[in-house]
Simulated assay, not measured.
Amino acid sequence: MEINNNREKSVLIANRYKPLDTSDRGGMGEVLYCEDLHLQRQVVLKYLQAGVEARRLLDEQKALSKLRSKHVVQLYDIVTIPKGGADHPAIVLEFIDGEVLTPGSFSADNDYLHVIWQISCGLTDIHSQGVIHRDIKPSNIKIDSEGVVKILDFGLSRNNSNAETRSIIGTPIFMAPELWGDQTIAFNSSIDVYAFGVTCLALLNITPPSRLKNHPPTQPSWARFSGYFDGIPEEITEILHRCLASDSAVRPTMVEIQTLLAKHLLLNRHRAVVVLNGKPNILDFNNRRIALKASVGSLTIDYDGLSFKVTNFAGAVYMNNTPISAGIIIPGCCVLTFGTGNSRVFVTFDVSNPEVMP
Rank of each mutant, 00 (worst) to 15 (best):
L212Y: 04
L93Q: 02
I239W: 07
S167P: 06
A202K: 15
S161H: 11
R16D: 02
A291W: 09
M254G: 00
S105G: 14
H133V: 03
E235Y: 06
R211V: 05
C200A: 15
T80D: 13
V115A: 11
F196I: 05
I328G: 03
R56E: 14
A272T: 08
L267S: 13
Y318Q: 10
G315I: 08
N312W: 11
P358F: 07
P354L: 05
V193A: 04
I232F: 04
V149S: 02
L32T: 06
F95V: 00
D109N: 15
E53W: 09
S295N: 15
M175G: 03
N140I: 00
F285A: 14
D111R: 12
E235Q: 10
I236V: 06
C333V: 12
D21L: 07
N6I: 11
N281A: 06
P358M: 10
L152N: 00
L244Y: 03
A63R: 00
F313D: 03
G26V: 03
D125R: 00
A223I: 13
P220D: 09
A195E: 01
I185V: 13
T340V: 13
L201A: 11
A90H: 02
D109V: 11
V273N: 14
I91H: 02
E146L: 13
F346W: 12
N159K: 08
L32C: 08
W117V: 04
P89W: 02
P323Q: 01
E164M: 09
G181Q: 14
I119E: 01
N287I: 10
F196R: 04
H114V: 09
I324H: 03
S221W: 07
